Computed example of a mutant assay.
Amino acid sequence: MKRSYTVFWKRNLAFAKLAIVSNLEYRLNYFVDAVVQPTLTTGIEILLWFAVFRGAQTTEIAGFTREYYLSYALWGAFFARICTSWMYESRMIQEIDSGSINSLLTRPMSYYEYYFSQLMGYKFITTIVSMIIPLMAIGIFELPTKFARLPMAFALEFYYLILVHSISFVIASCAFYLNKVYSFTAAKNLALWLLTGELFPLDLMPEPFKSFVIALPFSAGVYVPVGYLTGRLEIASIYQSFISVTIGIVVVNLLGAWMWKKGLNVYTGTGA
């Protein structure tokens, strides 16, 4: 039993290292993905909230000042980059479409863990590099941030990544049955743009939509960790998010396991 656990962790650590090495191999692409894109996104978010407050001609919105919204925008753009998985989701879909999944199915591993470990490895190294941007901006503009809360916010964010990958696994499994599955990825990304709180803080929604959307596990992607980090929320919201994400992981993985098993039964691979 102990040997099997050791083999499991060594195997998945190797997958994570593979993701890090393969992405760092193309340094310009990695620099654009980890630094340029987050910088541009952050700049747009800051300009947006400056414009909102200037147009509203007020010092507070929903009880929070402009500085709180700028801090939310900075950390929101940062956490939103962490909780996306479209790149590996597209790879999974492509492999099923092309038939190149055949070579992976014969290996002593699961398809789910193969890409999950790569996703975690890539997100780990990207998070370290991208974090420079919000830290510099927070220091320059002196925006409110409770740095002692960072560990709990990161714990929730990376736990939420399990749900994100599970959803990607379900979407990729649809390629066994349907063509043009990439459109599901686009639709999912647009929905999460709103449901995570990346577009705007979810507590600005009117009731009863606000309570419903915040209760969903997707709010753990941006709104809850960023709200907790900026002082908008307290620890009870973090605990509630852990519970909702856990429920989401169980439900989505049960669906994914069922779709994967049925998909393999009808799958005919003709690729590599």
Rank of each mutant, 00 (worst) to 15 (best):
I167M: 15
I167D: 01
I167W: 02
I167E: 05
S168H: 00
S168M: 05
F169V: 05
F169P: 00
F169L: 11
F169C: 07
V170F: 12
V170E: 00
V170Q: 00
I171M: 11
I171W: 02
A172V: 00
A172G: 01
A172S: 04
S173K: 02
S173P: 01
S173W: 00
C174Q: 08
A175T: 10
A175I: 04
A175N: 03
A175L: 10
Y177R: 03
Y177E: 03
L178C: 05
L178E: 02
L178K: 05
L178W: 14
N179F: 04
N179M: 05
N179C: 00
N179T: 02
K180H: 08
K180G: 11
K180A: 14
V181Y: 02
Y182C: 00
S183H: 09
S183Q: 13
S183Y: 11
F184I: 09
T185P: 08
T185K: 13
A186S: 14
A187C: 07
K188N: 07
K188E: 08
K188W: 13
K188V: 07
N189K: 08
N189C: 10
N189G: 14
L190P: 04
L190C: 06
L190Q: 11
A191F: 09
L192K: 03
L192C: 03
W193S: 10
L194D: 05
L194P: 03
L194C: 12
L194M: 15
L194T: 14
L195D: 03
T196H: 12
T196L: 14
T196A: 14
G197N: 07
G197E: 07
G197V: 14
E198H: 11
L199A: 12
L199Y: 11
F200M: 10
F200C: 02
F200E: 02
P201Y: 07
P201A: 06
P201K: 13
P201M: 14
P201E: 13
L202D: 00
L202Y: 06
L202Q: 02
L202W: 04
L202E: 05
D203M: 09
D203W: 13
D203S: 10
D203V: 05
L204Y: 15
L204R: 14
L204V: 15
M205L: 15
P206A: 09
P206R: 12
P206H: 09
P206F: 10
P206M: 09
E207Q: 13
E207K: 08
E207H: 03
E207P: 03
E207Y: 11
P208H: 00
F209I: 15
K210P: 00
K210A: 06
K210T: 01
K210V: 01
S211F: 12
S211T: 15
S211E: 14
V213A: 06
V213G: 03
V213Q: 06
V213L: 07
V213P: 01
I214F: 01
I214S: 01
L216W: 02
P217R: 14
P217I: 09
P217E: 08
F218V: 04
F218Y: 05
S219W: 05
S219A: 15
A220N: 13
A220L: 13
A220I: 11
G221I: 12
G221K: 10
G221C: 09
V222W: 12
V222G: 04
Y223A: 08
Y223P: 07
V224N: 11
V226C: 08
V226A: 06
V226Q: 08
V226F: 08
G227S: 07
G227C: 12
